Simulated scan of single mutants.
Amino acid sequence: MRVVVFVKATEDSEAGIMPSNELGEAMGKFNEELVSAGIMLGGDGLKPSSKGKRIAFDGASRRVIDGPFAETRELVAGYWLWEVKDMDEAVEWVKRCPNPMPGPSEIEIRPVYELSDFADALTPDVIALHERTGEKLAERNGKED
């Protein structure tokens, strides 16, 4: 099962305050553990929302919204993509994580949809289209299924 693990933003992360060397080292060691255990597939920190944009969709209309965005507690400051056996394993790994922020913080875990989850909603042709795209992406990234 793949999960995305979101490090929620804080006022400090939204202000662009960089982590201390000690926190950087602790997070680096944790990432090493994740990679060594075969859990971590990817991940990065994100710049503050003031550097970002949102695109609002309404039918054929598109509207660009410049950051920063309100409600810091709803923003993401970083993420991991993990492969775990189940949600319980993901929770156990997050519990081992150093606090990713200098003060109080939250980490959210969300399961990733697998193509098989859409079997009843999509036609075989549409599933094949998505499978081809996944194969091309894996090939581009030098990975085999």
Rank of each mutant, 00 (worst) to 15 (best):
G67C: 03
T123G: 11
R63P: 00
K95F: 05
N141K: 09
E74V: 00
R110C: 02
Y79P: 00
E114V: 08
N141F: 15
L122Y: 05
D44M: 14
A77W: 10
A128C: 04
V84N: 01
I109G: 00
S116T: 12
E106H: 07
A121V: 13
F118H: 04
G134Q: 09
E131L: 10
K8D: 08
V4S: 04
W80R: 00
G67E: 05
A128R: 10
G42K: 09
K85Y: 02
G38R: 12
E106V: 01
E89M: 07
V35R: 10
S116R: 07
R63G: 01
R73K: 10
G42P: 07
E25M: 14
K29M: 12
R110E: 03
C97M: 15
D12R: 12
I127P: 01
V76C: 08
K143E: 15
E83K: 04
F30N: 02
C97A: 13
D86E: 08
N141Y: 14
M101Y: 07
K47Y: 04
L41K: 12
N21D: 15
D66F: 05
D145E: 12
D125A: 11
R2P: 01
G38T: 14
K53C: 02
E92S: 08
V7H: 09
E92R: 12
A77D: 10
S116Y: 02
S20E: 15
F57I: 15
F30C: 04
W82C: 01
I39C: 03
W93L: 05
D120S: 11
E74W: 04
N141L: 15
